[in-house]
Simulated scan of single mutants.
Amino acid sequence: MTHTTDHLIAHDVPTEQRNAATFGIDTLATPAIVDQLIDANSGIQAAVAAQAEHITAAVDAALVSWIAGGVIHYAGAGTSGRLAVLDAVELLPTYGVGDDRVQAHLAGGLDAMMRAVEGAEDDAEAGYALGRSLAPHDLMFGVTASGRTPFVGGALRGAREVGAATVLLASNPNAELAPLAETAILPDTGPEVITGSTRMNAATAQKIILNTFSTALMVRCGKTYDNLMIDVAATNEKLRARTVRMIVQASSLTASQARACLEETGGEIAPALVMALGGVELPIARAALTRYPPDPSRTGDPSGIRSALASLG
Rank of each mutant, 00 (worst) to 15 (best):
M1H: 14
H3R: 15
L8H: 06
H11K: 13
H11P: 00
D12F: 03
T15G: 13
R18Y: 12
N19L: 01
A20R: 11
G24Y: 12
T27S: 14
L28D: 12
L37W: 06
I38S: 11
G43Q: 10
I44V: 15
A47T: 11
V48N: 04
H54K: 13
H54L: 07
A57Q: 15
V59I: 14
S65Y: 06
S65N: 10
S65P: 09
S65F: 07
A68V: 05
G70M: 08
G70W: 12
Y74G: 10
A77D: 09
T79L: 00
A88Q: 08
V89W: 01
L92P: 02
Y95Q: 06
V97T: 08
D99H: 13
R101Y: 09
R101C: 08
R101K: 15
V102Y: 04
A107T: 10
A107P: 12
A107D: 11
M113N: 04
M113R: 14
M114Y: 13
G119A: 01
A120L: 04
A120D: 00
E121T: 10
Y128V: 01
A135C: 10
H137I: 03
D138L: 02
D138I: 03
D138K: 05
T144Q: 02
G147K: 02
G154L: 10
A155V: 03
R157N: 06
E161G: 04
V162F: 11
A165K: 14
A170G: 10
A170R: 05
N174H: 15
A175R: 04
L177G: 08
L177N: 03
L180V: 10
E182Y: 04
P187Y: 09
D188C: 02
G190M: 09
E192A: 10
E192Y: 09
E192V: 08
T195F: 00
T195P: 02
G196P: 11
G196R: 05
R199Y: 01
N201E: 07
A203E: 10
T204P: 09
Q206F: 06
I208S: 10
N211D: 15
T212G: 01
T215N: 05
C221P: 00
G222V: 01
G222Y: 04
T224D: 08
Y225N: 01
L228V: 14
I230H: 12
D231R: 03
T235V: 07
E237P: 00
R240N: 08
A241H: 14
T243E: 14
V244Y: 11
L253D: 12
T254V: 03
S256T: 15
Q257E: 15
R259C: 07
A260H: 10
E263N: 14
G266H: 11
G266N: 12
G267V: 12
E268N: 05
I269D: 10
A270F: 03
A272D: 09
L273H: 03
L273R: 04
A276L: 00
L277G: 05
L277R: 07
V280H: 05
L282M: 08
L282D: 05
P283I: 13
P283L: 08
R286V: 00
A288K: 05
L289R: 03
T290R: 13
R291T: 07
P293G: 06
P294K: 01
D295V: 02
P296C: 08
R298I: 00
R298G: 01
T299L: 13
G300T: 01
P302C: 02
G304F: 05
I305H: 00
S307P: 07
S307C: 00
A310H: 04
